[in-house]
């Protein structure tokens, strides 16, 4: 495939600066269903286009994708708005799809997208309650909304490849297909995700609880999220648990 073709794919399987397109789009779209569709479909379009190419992508593209992933992982550290946090993490995660073998990439894209989908739902829920979803402005969600906080914590952990979430197996798969240089990039990316997740959770759930008036997630809602996360874990174990 021509360089131009790869650059086109770079819009969907993010390559900086083409990644700016997706990030600008996601942060401007306020319609929730549309946001969810974007999170689910965007990398799949890229993978469909990539499937039209003959053979594996050239090494320079893979290195570029790794650098993009690193850039957005680093930038993730300083993001306080949950919607943007999702966009940056999606960019960083989908960049890694360039490393994965074509046969499994669609499944791994799904594993990366699904926790972000749940996170987008939770973000919308926070925005409905408080008018915005920023860290630091309503510290202490764990005190005021324990059920919501529990679901949020587990979803964020699933998004940043914490086992037994399927994203963990996707990361392992990326390691298996990486050269030593790319492996060190993956190490840095994973480390930055953990750091960013801890900063996000610390800014949202930890604190004296200054928003007591907030209404917590209903029991049924919490169980629905739990069921979705459990399905994700079981699905990941069944389809990707044997990482190869």
């Amino acid at each position: 495939m021509s360089t131009l073709g790869y650059l086109l794919i770079g819009f969907f399987l993010p390559l900086f600066p083409f990644s700016i397109g997706f990030n600008a789009l996601l942060t401007r779209v306020t319609n929730l269903p549309l946001r969810l569709i974007l999170l689910l479909a965007w990398p799949q379009i890229g993978l469909l286009l990539l499937a039209q190419t003959d053979g594996a992508p050239p090494a320079w593209i893979v290195t570029w994708a790794m650098a993009t992933s690193l850039l957005y992982s680093l930038r993730l550290l300083a993001v306080r708005e949950l919607g943007r946090w999702i966009a940056f993490l999606a960019t960083a995660a989908w960049g890694l799809l360039w490393l994965l073998p074509a046969a499994q990439a669609a499944l791994h894209a799904l594993w990366f997208s699904l926790p972000l989908l749940l996170l987008a739902l939770l973000t919308a829920s926070l925005e409905r309650r408080f008018g915005g979803a920023y860290t630091g402005i309503y510290q202490g969600l764990a005190q005021a909304m324990p059920r919501f906080s529990a679901v949020l914590v587990i979803t964020v952990l699933a998004a940043v490849a914490t086992p037994p979430a399927p994203t963990f197996f996707s990361m392992l798969s990326a390691f298996l297909n990486a050269t030593p240089g790319l492996m060190s990039g993956l190490v840095a990316v994973w480390l930055l995700w953990t750091w960013a997740a801890a900063r996000l959770l610390q800014g949202l759930i930890v604190g004296p609880g200054t928003c007591e008036a907030a209404v917590d997630l209903e029991r049924a809602g919490a169980w629905t999220y739990t069921a979705a996360l459990l399905t994700l874990v079981v699905g990941g174990a069944v389809f990707s648990g044997g990482v190869a």
Binding site: I20, N23, A24, T27, L71, L74, R75, A78, V79
Partner: peptide, 13 residues
């Protein structure tokens, strides 16, 4: 600080 500066330069996208 580097992460913050990068975000400002790149207009948070």
């Amino acid at each position: 600080s580097v992460a913050e500066r990068l975000n400002v330069w790149l207009r948070w996208v």
